[in-house]
């Protein structure tokens, strides 16, 4: 009867059955709100982002926040040890997370983290990649698509320039990195479904 919300940002991933679903959600919401605020602050630091209309900023953040967080926290997923360290400091093995009902989403997150981790990006490269991730988010609801496309083009150029100048002998890294964008989209959809399922039927 325990209520399970096994997200690495959740300080209390397993709640007793006596707690109401709303209480469990409110507690989880308090855990992820600071992380979402940090993504908003990060977005504001992207050159050109604040030139977009506020409506379009909100639309990009709505569809891109989870994807940015997935990149930011992919180091919490230890593919070698097959374990995830939550932000509360506790480490959960893959087996224990499976017992908590984490299935294909968890596998996809490990897969993504392993692929991204293997690229060995520097912190500034990772930050620029996160900026590309954010402006590459779902365009539904965007009013000025041209402005978002222009910003995306500028950021992709900057990322390509940074990566290729540091690794002139490796022409494969940049295209490999861009291939992670559709992976993130798929993860985002899967993750939304999982959270909505909890909201509808905890």
């Amino acid at each position: 009867g325990a209520k399970v919300l096994a997200c690495p940002l959740n300080a209390c991933p397993v709640a007793p059955a006596s707690r109401s679903s709303q209480e469990v959600w409110d507690s989880f919401s308090q855990c992820f709100t600071p992380a979402v605020r940090e993504v908003v602050e990060f977005a504001k630091s992207i050159p050109g982002f604040q030139s977009l209309s506020q409506h379009d900023q909100v639309m990009l953040l709505k569809s891109g926040t989870f994807q940015v967080l997935m990149v930011r926290f992919c180091s919490l997923f230890d593919a070698k040890e097959r374990a995830v360290t939550f932000l509360n400091g506790q480490t959960y093995s893959l087996a224990s997370l499976r017992a908590l009902g984490m299935g294909s989403l968890l596998d996809a997150m490990f897969d993504f983290s392993e692929k991204l981790g293997s690229m060995g990006l520097e912190p500034d490269e990772m930050a620029l990649f996160m900026a590309v991730v954010l402006v590459s988010a779902d365009r539904s609801g965007i009013v000025d698509v041209g402005a978002v496309e222009q910003l995306q083009e500028n950021l992709i150029k900057a990322l390509r320039s940074l990566i290729t100048s540091r690794r002139p002998d490796d022409s494969t890294l940049f295209p490999k990195l861009l291939l992670r964008l559709p992976d993130l989209r798929t993860l985002n959809n899967h993750h939304s479904d999982k959270l909505l399922a909890f909201r509808i039927d905890p």
Binding site: V36, R37, V40, E41, K44, T65
Partner: peptide, 27 residues
């Protein structure tokens, strides 16, 4: 439930974080 970000409360948090910045700038 056709807009996950609304139903998960994400949009509200995002708007407040963006608006907070606007209010600070106005001050």
């Amino acid at each position: 439930f056709n807009d996950p970000a609304n139903n998960l409360g994400l949009e509200d948090i995002i708007r407040k974080a963006l608006m907070g910045n606007l209010e600070e700038r106005q001050e």
